[in-house]
Amino acid sequence: MTDTILRIWSRIETVLIGLLVLCALFTFMGGAAVRVLTPQHAVDWADEVALYFIVWASVIAGSTLAAEGRHINTEIIVGGLSDRKRRAAAVFTFALTLVFCAVMAWLGWEAFEFSRMLDDRSASSLRTPQAWFLFLALPTGMGLMVLKMILLAFAGRGITTSPEPAETADFTKKAE
């Protein structure tokens, strides 16, 4: 059950991430095309808007990375320990990550509210409110990661399972 939820959830996120990156690409290159072809209609916000898409895609990807065990860590030292100690370290770092992400989600929310109160805007002629377009990304991404980690805990999985060589081999294969 938990695994099914995780799988569907990751699928949705993957589509969303792909969509956000493609939007970034079209906005950015569209801005470039206008500048080259009809410079008198050039806009001063293409980079800015493309970046918002990328920032949102990045933070949402954080949660899928967690589900796929792809957040980078090092096991140089823990790898040499006994199974029991290694397990204890894994539980500790998982709990720490959960707490950290929850704290960041909270602080990110405070940052969002502060920026909204300050009404601080971007420097382009769009004058984009930074609270909604930029700062809201962090609590959203961290919040998603927290929810996902709770599900992962139910499924008995961590977020940094370092891959075995066999598993890495399919990286060289083509997409499914």
Partner: peptide, 8 residues
Amino acid sequence: NINGVATP
């Protein structure tokens, strides 16, 4: 009528 491009 100048094409101003906001550039970092």
